[in-house]
Simulated scan of single mutants.
Amino acid sequence: MILVTGATGHVGRALVDELTATSTPLRALTRTPPRAGFPPRVETAEGDLSRTDALRAAMEGVESLFLVLPDGQLPAEVLPTVRRAGVRRVVLVSSLLAQTHPSSVIGAAMLTAETAVRESGLDWTLLRPWEFASNTLAWASQIRGGDTVRLPAAGLASPVIHPADIAAVAARALTEDGHEARVYPLTGPEALTVEQKVTAIGTALGRELHVEVHADPQPADHVARQDQGAVTEDPMIPGVATQESPGVLPTVEEVTGNPARGFHLWATENSDAFGPRTCPSANDA
């Protein structure tokens, strides 16, 4: 049995879809099972990682755990329950900032989480994704309301990763041998600027979009959302990489046998979040 935490997040839902195609028994942990909309073969357990009683019940019969930590929670608060339940394998979603910028707020926090998992006595695999493609959902309200995305900075080119590719790597680590004590740095197939990401979203919508960079008089947001895969050091600007990336890495293809999915595909798949299409996209032709 595999337990997926963060099951309604961008990676967790993609992982549930990935594992549903296999014969592996699967359970999803969610606060609201009736609204989760999982396939019938997926067991659901109500609760979250902060509720020890619910977590203990959700762990019954579980051998492998996909672990996404909520903001501010440490694995040390979860792992004793995991060990007592008889779980033998854990796959943790960390951040590539743990490698590239270990002194940053997010990098340091992820290193602490990784250390707890490494020292847990469980078989472990660490996933270190770079910027999630889904971070750009932070621009959705601006794009629904107009043709300009206004940002306080343009940031740096970034090889954003499709959440489904993180899920694909996680599925291998959860269901195959040979991934124990492995650290997987994950990126998308190409580094894109903010302008290129906005253009890709516009193409998916059949609209011409623009970027406007302006000084932000308000303090930048220093809180990163792990569910959104935030990888920027503080100050954090949603959808904008403020730290230099490690470049394009081949890990996704090495682990899964399939090339990493591009941002243009993600934008097409999620175009409804940004508004209605004004004409068919190239993928609809």
Rank of each mutant, 00 (worst) to 15 (best):
residue 17 D to T: 08
residue 268 T to E: 11
residue 208 E to K: 15
residue 162 H to K: 13
residue 97 L to P: 02
residue 20 T to K: 06
residue 197 K to H: 15
residue 136 T to H: 08
residue 228 Q to H: 08
residue 219 P to M: 04
residue 233 E to H: 14
residue 119 E to D: 14
residue 126 L to R: 05
residue 172 R to K: 08
residue 86 G to N: 08
residue 219 P to F: 04
residue 105 V to T: 05
residue 160 V to A: 04
residue 120 S to R: 04
residue 238 P to N: 02
residue 56 R to Q: 02
residue 81 T to I: 05
residue 192 L to K: 07
residue 22 T to Q: 07
residue 125 T to R: 07
residue 2 I to W: 04
residue 247 G to A: 04
residue 158 S to K: 00
residue 79 L to V: 13
residue 12 G to D: 00
residue 280 P to F: 07
residue 161 I to G: 01
residue 233 E to I: 09
residue 90 V to K: 15
residue 24 T to G: 10
residue 94 S to V: 11
residue 224 A to S: 13
residue 6 G to H: 04
residue 51 R to S: 14
residue 92 L to D: 13
residue 190 E to S: 11
residue 108 A to T: 05
residue 104 S to H: 02
residue 265 L to S: 06
residue 279 C to A: 13
residue 201 I to L: 14
residue 10 H to G: 00
residue 221 D to C: 13
residue 69 L to A: 12
residue 253 E to V: 05
residue 12 G to F: 00
residue 152 P to E: 00
residue 199 T to D: 15
residue 155 G to W: 00
residue 86 G to K: 09
residue 46 E to C: 10
residue 35 R to F: 00
residue 35 R to H: 01
residue 24 T to C: 11
residue 89 R to D: 07
residue 57 A to T: 01
residue 131 E to K: 03
residue 202 G to L: 12
residue 131 E to C: 01
residue 263 F to Q: 05
residue 259 P to D: 09
residue 47 G to Y: 02
residue 70 P to D: 13
residue 189 P to F: 12
residue 215 A to R: 12
residue 149 V to M: 01
residue 92 L to W: 10
residue 6 G to I: 04
residue 134 S to Q: 02
residue 14 A to H: 12
residue 254 E to D: 15
residue 164 A to Q: 14
residue 211 V to P: 04
residue 40 P to N: 09
residue 159 P to W: 02
residue 224 A to L: 08
residue 2 I to Q: 07
residue 282 A to W: 14
residue 183 V to D: 14
residue 172 R to T: 01
residue 167 A to G: 08
residue 151 L to N: 02
residue 154 A to S: 13
residue 156 L to Y: 06
residue 245 S to D: 11
residue 17 D to H: 06
residue 34 P to Y: 05
residue 122 L to M: 03
residue 128 R to P: 10
residue 233 E to T: 15
residue 60 E to G: 01
residue 262 G to H: 08
residue 113 A to E: 12
residue 105 V to C: 01
residue 225 R to A: 06
residue 40 P to R: 12
residue 5 T to K: 12
residue 120 S to K: 05
residue 267 A to D: 14
residue 195 E to V: 03
residue 82 V to H: 09
residue 7 A to D: 02
residue 101 H to R: 14
residue 146 G to F: 00
residue 3 L to V: 06
residue 44 T to A: 02
residue 67 L to R: 05
residue 253 E to L: 06
